[in-house]
Design a binder for these strands. Structure first.
Lengths: 121, 121
DNA sequence: CAGAATCCCGCCGGATACTG
DNA sequence: CAGTATCCGGCGGGATTCTG
């Protein structure tokens, strides 16, 4: 992601939101209320500290999340979506709609909530 | 993809178009002219037969491409996008636009064509 | 021409333990 | 509370070879 290469913009986008956990995190933060590290972890349920901190770090590096650190003890850090990230939500909604249509078409007895991020996605 | 699971529709969508080669293939076929196996391979350049046939097969299984086989010798097979796939192109365009904006923002001396699929994506 | 079969490697992501 | 450090297995994808 940080090399200066000619790259397909779609693949660039998928690189930013790709991987197993970034999308669920973005969905969680889409509610527009800053969330603490522990709260995100609790919502996602089975993510490890390793994966969560790494995913958040990469999302931050790509300008997707704001990290606000309060210098208190015990530590408190809040994460929220950047405006750039919010601009992606529209496209994600289209993906969700398309995905739902396909799921309904292929196998017509499926419930279509987002299990991982526990939200509407 | 074929298990009957509650699944996030966005992740379902990314599952369908995910992987290294499916997106370039879709971009190629987006021109709306059916393409032969060999033509796709030639355009993509460095894809192996393994990856191309596997990607096409999975795309077909997920209702993304039509496979038209002419029973002649030597074999001739043409691939094209299904209507379902075409419904995704709008969302892909949004992804491309967002990706371009980000690329321009982060590193402002980059050309933004799609190197892999040789098309406008 | 349009693939299938096999073998193999890198790395994404998981488990566990530790810390300011 | 909010993370690091280290080790490790599985699997996505590549190289090569073969065929109807």
């Amino acid at each position: 992601m940080n090399e200066k290469l000619k790259v397909c913009p779609i693949r660039y986008t998928l690189g930013v939101i790709g991987g197993k956990w970034k999308l669920p995190i973005i969905c969680l933060l889409a509610c527009d209320t800053p969330m603490r590290y522990g709260a995100i972890k609790k919502k996602l349920g089975d993510i490890t500290n390793m994966m969560l901190s790494q995913s958040l770090k990469e999302l931050e590096a790509n300008g997707m999340v704001n990290r606000k650190q309060y210098n208190v003890i015990p530590p408190k850090v809040e994460y929220s979506l950047t405006n750039e990230a919010k601009e992606l939500l529209g496209a994600l909604t289209m993906f969700a709609k398309w995905g739902n249509d396909q799921i309904d078409k292929n196998e017509n007895n499926i419930t279509s909530g987002c299990e991982e991020c526990q939200s509407s996605c």
